[in-house]
Amino acid sequence: MNWDFILKYLPLYETAALLTVKIGLIGIALSIAVGFLCAAALYFKVPVLRQIVIVYIEISRNTPLLIQLFFIYYALPKVGVAMSAQFCGVLGLAFLGGSYMAEAFRSGLEAVEPIQNESALSLGMERSQALRYVILPQAVSISVPAFVANIIFLLKETSVFSAISLMDLMFTAKDLIGQYYKTTESLFLLVVFYLIILLPVSILGSYVERRLRYAGFGS
């Protein structure tokens, strides 16, 4: 292992990691928003919108992110929709993540017993009040583990961004391997940086999941 090489190229990886994190976070935030809206459309059986959401979820979940990105970045400009690579990355991640987040929220909503809604209604609450005070708080806490798993999944998926020539961690590693043949060092840095990004989220995820599984409300 050549430590001088590692120190020399550390800043390059830092820049790349920041790009990965930046696009990842914006994409994930958008995924959550998209997922929430889609889950609401499904839960309330909004006509038309519900059918659109179902089609979207099937397409998004049954095609690879890499192909989605190729389509957004290379194909859409041919019909006049050209966007920067970074914007395409965010858009692709949100397109993919939206459906995963929607499923997480939806299964959370469905896991709340119908009697919870009924007893709220029988106390004289309006549907909107029952949703806000009784259904949503429970649904959100039920979906937290799936939600964290999705965040990790989406952060991992950002590794394909180099395919649309974004200078992320993969791009940097491949570049250094190609230029200097420092394979071991380049790969070592790659793994370390992904661990720095992903380990905290993963640890937080298993902590939250354990708390929810073994404890729940009131401990």
Partner: peptide, 9 residues
């Protein structure tokens, strides 16, 4: 109701 109708949260 028969059961489960307190709000657990």
């Amino acid at each position: 109701f028969q059961s489960y109708d307190l709000f657990p949260h």
